[in-house]
Design a protein around this nucleic acid. Structure first.
Lengths: 133, 133
DNA sequence: CGGTATCCGTCGCGATACTG
DNA sequence: CAGTATCGCGACGGATACCG
């Protein structure tokens, strides 16, 4: 006899759904590009390769830890390449792969919608807030 | 004489950049749609209005708290409407606004890229992992 | 220059319980 | 049915210090 509390059933359902979401391609991509720094790094490399410190200066707010972490993940995912030029001091360049390049139009679509509609969202928000204070 | 530690300078730069990012339309949109539940609710409403509990069943893993919170934010941003039908028990329907509807193509673009390229990402990841273990 | 390692605060989110 | 209120924890990311 299987006896299960409501809480247990709910947890099982949640875990099953989480597993399903973990499989979902769109969900996974969204998780990636929605990362605070990913989009900035990607667009920062749109015009060509850049050095590590160059990127750090371009994306003024990023910490070394997060810049490194973001670049490593992007490299792992085949979106950017990391090229080390042995010298003193060492020189490391990052560049978009064709795969990474193919992602730019998607980012552009997001940016496009945002640029044309963000004012509407802003207006809606103000109306909403005013109506309940 | 202004004396500032390196740490202070860095913090100021970070805060300035954070303020800049807070202004960036694309960044703001990305913050919204990248929310774990937003995309699911939006696509869940793509085929027409749905009741609260209906959405909860459709998106099996969501908690009541997060479903409510997500819907409230979307309503505030003018992306969905909330319609209360007084009865016993009460009936509440949610539907996309034209603005919310216009966001679906963007989501589709994301999904499109993910569906065609996620295998490449997966492959790159495996290659990367294998090369360093 | 281009990182790595560690610590630690905060905050999103789920769990739980209660309501009109 | 459609929520609201409160609590607690675990992950994320910033600060700091150190290394080849």
């Amino acid at each position: 006899m299987t006896t299960r509390t409501r809480a247990e059933l709910r947890r099982e359902r949640r875990e099953a759904y989480d597993a399903y979401l973990a499989e979902c391609p769109a969900r996974r991509l969204l998780d990636r590009i929605s990362d605070k720094w990913v989009s900035l790094v990607l667009t920062g490399l749109a015009d060509g390769p850049r050095r590590y410190s160059d990127l750090g200066r371009l994306i003024a707010g990023v910490s070394e830890k997060m810049l490194t972490q973001t670049l490593r993940t992007l490299e792992r995912d085949g979106l950017v390449t990391r090229t080390v030029t042995p010298a003193t001091p060492v020189r490391v360049d990052y560049a978009l792969t064709p795969l990474g390049l193919s992602l730019l139009p998607v980012m552009a679509a997001v940016k496009g919608w945002a640029d044309t509609h963000i004012d509407d969202v802003e207006a809606a928000r103000e109306t909403y807030d005013r109506s309940r204070q």
